[in-house]
Protein backbone atom coordinates (compact mmCIF):
# COMPACT_ATOMS: atom_id res chain seq x y z
CA UNK A 1 0.00 0.00 0.00
CA UNK A 2 1.52 3.27 -1.11
CA UNK A 3 1.77 5.78 1.72
CA UNK A 4 1.04 8.51 -0.83
CA UNK A 5 -2.47 7.03 -1.09
CA UNK A 6 -2.88 7.43 2.68
CA UNK A 7 -1.71 11.06 2.56
CA UNK A 8 -4.11 11.68 -0.30
CA UNK A 9 -6.99 10.32 1.76
CA UNK A 10 -6.05 12.77 4.49
CA UNK A 11 -4.82 10.10 6.90
CA UNK A 12 -2.33 11.28 9.56
CA UNK A 13 0.44 8.87 8.59
CA UNK A 14 2.35 7.31 11.48
CA UNK A 15 5.37 5.20 10.67
CA UNK A 16 8.16 3.68 12.73
CA UNK A 17 11.59 2.38 12.00
CA UNK A 18 12.83 -1.20 12.07
CA UNK A 19 16.56 -1.91 12.11
CA UNK A 20 17.47 -5.27 10.54
CA UNK A 21 19.79 -7.44 12.69
CA UNK A 22 23.42 -8.32 12.07
CA UNK A 23 22.62 -11.89 11.15
CA UNK A 24 20.29 -13.87 8.95
CA UNK A 25 17.44 -14.60 11.37
CA UNK A 26 14.48 -12.30 10.94
CA UNK A 27 11.91 -13.99 13.23
CA UNK A 28 12.64 -11.55 16.08
CA UNK A 29 12.14 -8.46 13.91
CA UNK A 30 8.90 -9.84 12.52
CA UNK A 31 7.51 -10.77 15.93
CA UNK A 32 8.38 -7.38 17.40
CA UNK A 33 6.91 -5.53 14.42
CA UNK A 34 3.70 -7.58 14.61
CA UNK A 35 3.36 -6.91 18.32
CA UNK A 36 4.08 -3.16 18.45
CA UNK A 37 3.92 -1.74 14.91
CA UNK A 38 1.03 -3.49 13.18
CA UNK A 39 -1.35 -0.61 13.93
CA UNK A 40 0.86 1.92 12.10
CA UNK A 41 0.45 3.16 8.53
CA UNK A 42 3.81 1.73 7.46
CA UNK A 43 7.18 0.57 8.74
CA UNK A 44 10.52 1.92 7.51
CA UNK A 45 13.30 -0.63 7.15
CA UNK A 46 16.78 0.86 7.39
CA UNK A 47 19.57 0.10 4.92
CA UNK A 48 22.72 -0.77 6.90
CA UNK A 49 21.97 2.15 9.19
CA UNK A 50 24.97 4.22 10.34
CA UNK A 51 27.05 2.29 7.79
CA UNK A 52 26.96 -0.83 9.96
CA UNK A 53 26.78 -4.08 7.95
CA UNK A 54 23.52 -5.96 8.58
CA UNK A 55 21.02 -8.15 6.77
CA UNK A 56 19.46 -6.29 3.85
CA UNK A 57 16.62 -3.82 3.93
CA UNK A 58 14.96 -5.47 0.92
CA UNK A 59 14.88 -8.96 2.48
CA UNK A 60 13.52 -7.53 5.72
CA UNK A 61 10.85 -5.57 3.82
CA UNK A 62 9.79 -8.77 2.08
CA UNK A 63 9.34 -10.78 5.28
CA UNK A 64 7.50 -7.89 6.96
CA UNK A 65 5.20 -7.59 3.97
CA UNK A 66 4.53 -11.33 4.08
CA UNK A 67 3.66 -10.88 7.77
CA UNK A 68 1.03 -8.30 6.87
CA UNK A 69 2.90 -5.05 7.52
CA UNK A 70 3.35 -2.22 5.04
CA UNK A 71 7.10 -1.72 4.49
CA UNK A 72 8.93 1.40 3.33
CA UNK A 73 12.15 0.32 1.68
CA UNK A 74 15.01 2.63 2.70
CA UNK A 75 17.62 2.75 -0.01
CA UNK A 76 20.99 4.48 0.31
CA UNK A 77 23.59 5.26 -2.34
CA UNK A 78 26.56 4.36 -0.15
CA UNK A 79 27.04 0.72 -1.13
CA UNK A 80 25.69 0.35 -4.65
CA UNK A 81 26.29 1.91 -8.02
CA UNK A 82 23.50 2.93 -10.40
CA UNK A 83 23.26 -0.56 -11.90
CA UNK A 84 22.74 -2.25 -8.51
CA UNK A 85 20.35 0.45 -7.27
CA UNK A 86 18.09 0.11 -10.31
CA UNK A 87 18.29 -3.67 -10.08
CA UNK A 88 17.29 -3.60 -6.38
CA UNK A 89 14.40 -1.26 -7.16
CA UNK A 90 13.13 -3.73 -9.76
CA UNK A 91 13.57 -6.52 -7.20
CA UNK A 92 11.50 -4.53 -4.70
CA UNK A 93 8.78 -4.02 -7.30
CA UNK A 94 8.84 -7.75 -8.09
CA UNK A 95 8.11 -8.40 -4.40
CA UNK A 96 5.25 -5.90 -4.42
CA UNK A 97 7.13 -3.41 -2.24
CA UNK A 98 5.90 -0.02 -3.39
CA UNK A 99 7.25 2.52 -0.86
CA UNK A 100 10.85 3.71 -1.19
CA UNK A 101 12.70 6.24 0.94
CA UNK A 102 15.71 7.60 -0.95
CA UNK A 103 18.80 8.60 1.01
CA UNK A 104 22.37 9.47 0.14
CA UNK A 105 23.52 7.47 3.17
CA UNK A 106 26.11 7.97 5.87
CA UNK A 107 29.74 7.78 4.83
CA UNK A 108 31.41 4.36 5.19
CA UNK A 109 33.95 5.94 7.59
CA UNK A 110 31.22 6.33 10.23
CA UNK A 111 30.36 2.65 10.51
CA UNK A 112 31.86 -0.67 11.53
CA UNK A 113 33.67 -1.22 8.22
CA UNK A 114 35.59 2.00 7.53
CA UNK A 115 37.85 0.08 5.14
CA UNK A 116 34.99 -0.19 2.63
CA UNK A 117 34.86 1.80 -0.59
CA UNK A 118 32.21 4.52 -0.41
CA UNK A 119 30.22 4.40 -3.65
CA UNK A 120 27.89 7.43 -3.95
CA UNK A 121 27.60 6.91 -7.71
CA UNK A 122 24.12 8.43 -7.33
CA UNK A 123 22.80 10.55 -4.46
CA UNK A 124 19.37 11.05 -2.90
CA UNK A 125 18.35 13.47 -5.66
CA UNK A 126 19.53 11.43 -8.64
CA UNK A 127 18.13 8.26 -7.02
CA UNK A 128 14.68 9.88 -6.93
CA UNK A 129 14.95 10.91 -10.57
CA UNK A 130 16.18 7.41 -11.44
CA UNK A 131 12.99 5.95 -9.97
CA UNK A 132 10.96 8.39 -12.05
CA UNK A 133 12.82 7.18 -15.13
CA UNK A 134 12.15 3.52 -14.26
CA UNK A 135 8.48 4.41 -13.80
CA UNK A 136 8.46 5.75 -17.35
CA UNK A 137 9.48 2.31 -18.62
CA UNK A 138 13.20 2.93 -19.16
CA UNK A 139 16.41 2.54 -17.21
CA UNK A 140 18.69 5.55 -16.86
CA UNK A 141 20.88 4.40 -19.72
CA UNK A 142 17.77 4.78 -21.92
CA UNK A 143 17.05 1.08 -22.40
CA UNK A 144 13.47 -0.08 -22.38
CA UNK A 145 12.13 -2.21 -19.52
CA UNK A 146 10.16 -5.34 -20.36
CA UNK A 147 6.51 -5.32 -19.34
CA UNK A 148 4.63 -2.79 -17.24
CA UNK A 149 7.02 -0.43 -15.45
CA UNK A 150 7.17 -0.35 -11.64
CA UNK A 151 5.54 2.40 -9.60
CA UNK A 152 6.58 3.58 -6.16
CA UNK A 153 5.61 6.09 -3.51
CA UNK A 154 8.85 8.07 -3.52
CA UNK A 155 10.01 9.46 -0.18
CA UNK A 156 12.96 11.54 0.92
CA UNK A 157 14.38 13.04 4.08
CA UNK A 158 15.15 16.56 5.25
CA UNK A 159 16.91 17.96 8.30
CA UNK A 160 14.72 20.84 9.54
CA UNK A 161 16.81 21.83 12.57
CA UNK A 162 20.11 21.77 10.68
CA UNK A 163 22.40 24.73 11.29
CA UNK A 164 22.40 25.39 7.55
CA UNK A 165 18.68 25.30 7.09
CA UNK A 166 18.69 27.39 3.89
CA UNK A 167 20.97 24.86 2.17
CA UNK A 168 18.67 22.07 3.43
CA UNK A 169 15.63 23.84 1.98
CA UNK A 170 17.42 24.21 -1.33
CA UNK A 171 18.18 20.48 -1.29
CA UNK A 172 14.56 19.75 -0.38
CA UNK A 173 13.49 21.73 -3.44
CA UNK A 174 15.87 19.66 -5.60
CA UNK A 175 14.33 16.49 -4.18
CA UNK A 176 10.84 17.74 -5.02
CA UNK A 177 12.00 18.58 -8.57
CA UNK A 178 13.47 15.07 -8.82
CA UNK A 179 10.19 13.43 -7.85
CA UNK A 180 9.93 13.24 -4.03
CA UNK A 181 6.29 12.79 -3.02
CA UNK A 182 6.65 12.80 0.77
CA UNK A 183 9.26 13.70 3.37
CA UNK A 184 10.35 12.32 6.72
CA UNK A 185 12.48 14.57 8.91
CA UNK A 186 15.51 14.15 11.11
CA UNK A 187 14.63 14.02 14.83
CA UNK A 188 13.05 17.24 16.11
CA UNK A 189 13.37 18.56 19.68
CA UNK A 190 13.28 22.30 19.08
CA UNK A 191 9.66 22.77 18.07
CA UNK A 192 9.94 26.50 17.47
CA UNK A 193 12.72 25.95 14.98
CA UNK A 194 10.78 23.15 13.35
CA UNK A 195 7.63 25.21 12.95
CA UNK A 196 9.54 28.05 11.35
CA UNK A 197 11.09 25.50 8.97
CA UNK A 198 7.64 24.17 8.07
CA UNK A 199 6.45 27.69 7.25
CA UNK A 200 9.15 27.80 4.58
CA UNK A 201 8.72 24.18 3.43
CA UNK A 202 4.98 24.71 2.85
CA UNK A 203 5.73 26.15 -0.59
CA UNK A 204 6.81 22.70 -1.85
CA UNK A 205 3.35 21.26 -1.17
CA UNK A 206 4.50 17.80 -0.13
CA UNK A 207 3.38 15.89 2.98
CA UNK A 208 5.95 15.96 5.79
CA UNK A 209 6.25 13.50 8.65
CA UNK A 210 7.76 14.86 11.86
CA UNK A 211 10.81 12.82 12.93
CA UNK A 212 10.86 11.56 16.52
CA UNK A 213 13.74 9.84 18.31
CA UNK A 214 12.91 8.70 21.85
CA UNK A 215 15.38 10.11 24.37
CA UNK A 216 16.73 7.29 26.51
CA UNK A 217 18.99 9.31 28.79
CA UNK A 218 20.57 12.72 29.36
CA UNK A 219 23.83 11.19 28.11
CA UNK A 220 22.23 10.21 24.82
CA UNK A 221 20.87 13.75 24.39
CA UNK A 222 24.27 15.34 25.06
CA UNK A 223 25.96 12.88 22.73
CA UNK A 224 23.54 13.69 19.91
CA UNK A 225 24.00 17.42 20.47
CA UNK A 226 27.73 16.99 20.13
CA UNK A 227 27.89 14.44 17.35
CA UNK A 228 24.69 13.98 15.36
CA UNK A 229 24.04 16.37 12.49
CA UNK A 230 20.83 18.36 12.57
CA UNK A 231 19.94 17.48 16.19
CA UNK A 232 19.62 20.03 18.97
CA UNK A 233 18.11 18.85 22.27
CA UNK A 234 17.36 21.99 24.31
CA UNK A 235 18.95 22.23 27.80
CA UNK A 236 15.60 22.15 29.63
CA UNK A 237 14.84 18.73 28.09
CA UNK A 238 18.21 17.44 29.25
CA UNK A 239 17.42 18.76 32.74
CA UNK A 240 14.07 16.97 32.61
CA UNK A 241 15.82 13.69 31.75
CA UNK A 242 18.24 14.22 34.63
CA UNK A 243 15.55 15.11 37.18
CA UNK A 244 14.10 11.63 37.77
CA UNK A 245 16.63 8.99 36.74
CA UNK A 246 14.33 6.03 37.45
CA UNK A 247 11.51 7.50 35.38
CA UNK A 248 13.94 8.27 32.54
CA UNK A 249 15.38 4.75 32.69
CA UNK A 250 11.89 3.30 32.46
CA UNK A 251 11.39 5.31 29.28
CA UNK A 252 8.57 7.40 30.66
CA UNK A 253 10.34 10.77 30.44
CA UNK A 254 11.46 10.15 26.85
CA UNK A 255 7.96 9.15 25.83
CA UNK A 256 6.41 12.16 27.58
CA UNK A 257 8.82 14.54 25.83
CA UNK A 258 8.12 12.92 22.45
CA UNK A 259 4.35 13.09 23.00
CA UNK A 260 4.64 16.78 23.83
CA UNK A 261 6.66 17.47 20.67
CA UNK A 262 4.13 15.60 18.55
CA UNK A 263 1.19 17.52 20.04
CA UNK A 264 2.91 20.87 19.47
CA UNK A 265 3.88 20.13 15.87
CA UNK A 266 0.83 18.16 14.77
CA UNK A 267 -1.01 21.12 13.19
CA UNK A 268 1.96 21.72 10.90
CA UNK A 269 2.59 18.16 9.61
CA UNK A 270 0.82 15.32 7.83
CA UNK A 271 2.31 12.51 9.89
CA UNK A 272 4.93 11.31 12.35
CA UNK A 273 7.92 9.03 11.85
CA UNK A 274 9.16 7.36 15.04
CA UNK A 275 12.71 6.11 15.36
CA UNK A 276 12.54 4.11 18.59
CA UNK A 277 15.97 2.45 18.24
CA UNK A 278 15.24 -0.61 20.35
CA UNK A 279 12.37 0.93 22.29
CA UNK A 280 9.64 -0.24 19.89
CA UNK A 281 7.71 -1.54 22.90
CA UNK A 282 7.19 2.09 24.02
CA UNK A 283 5.45 3.08 20.78
CA UNK A 284 1.90 2.12 21.88
CA UNK A 285 2.33 4.27 25.04
CA UNK A 286 3.65 7.16 22.91
CA UNK A 287 0.70 6.92 20.53
CA UNK A 288 -1.71 7.08 23.42
CA UNK A 289 0.00 10.03 25.15
CA UNK A 290 0.32 11.94 21.88
CA UNK A 291 -3.33 11.35 21.11
CA UNK A 292 -2.67 9.53 17.83
Amino acid sequence: MKVTELFRKGEFVVTAEVGPPKGCHLEGVVEEAKEYLSGLSAVNVTDCQSSVMRVGSLATCKVLKDAGLNPIYQLTCRDRNRIALQSDLLSAAAFGIDNVLCLTGDHTKLGDTPQAKPVFDLDSVSLLSTIKTLESGYDIAGNELVGDPPTFAKGAVVSPCSDSVDAQLSKMERKVMAGAEFFQTQAVYDTERFISFMEKAKQFDRPVQLGIVLLKSAGMASYMNKSVAGIHVPPDMIAELKADKEKTKAGITGVEIAARIIRECKPYVQGVHIMAMGWESKIPMLMELAGL
Binding site: H107, F120, Q168, Q186, S227
Partner: peptide, 20 residues
Protein backbone atom coordinates in the same frame (compact mmCIF):
# COMPACT_ATOMS: atom_id res chain seq x y z
CA UNK B 1 32.74 16.96 -0.64
CA UNK B 2 33.69 13.66 1.05
CA UNK B 3 30.94 11.91 -0.89
CA UNK B 4 31.62 13.81 -4.14
CA UNK B 5 27.94 14.72 -4.28
CA UNK B 6 26.79 16.70 -7.32
CA UNK B 7 23.24 17.64 -6.26
CA UNK B 8 23.73 19.51 -3.00
CA UNK B 9 24.66 18.87 0.60
CA UNK B 10 23.80 15.70 2.51
CA UNK B 11 22.34 15.81 6.00
CA UNK B 12 25.65 14.99 7.63
CA UNK B 13 27.22 18.41 8.20
CA UNK B 14 27.39 19.61 11.80
CA UNK B 15 28.26 23.27 12.49
CA UNK B 16 29.40 23.55 8.89
CA UNK B 17 31.85 20.65 9.23
CA UNK B 18 31.86 17.34 7.36
CA UNK B 19 30.58 14.16 9.04
CA UNK B 20 33.74 12.35 8.00
Amino acid sequence: CSKSLVNGQCGGAKNGKCEV
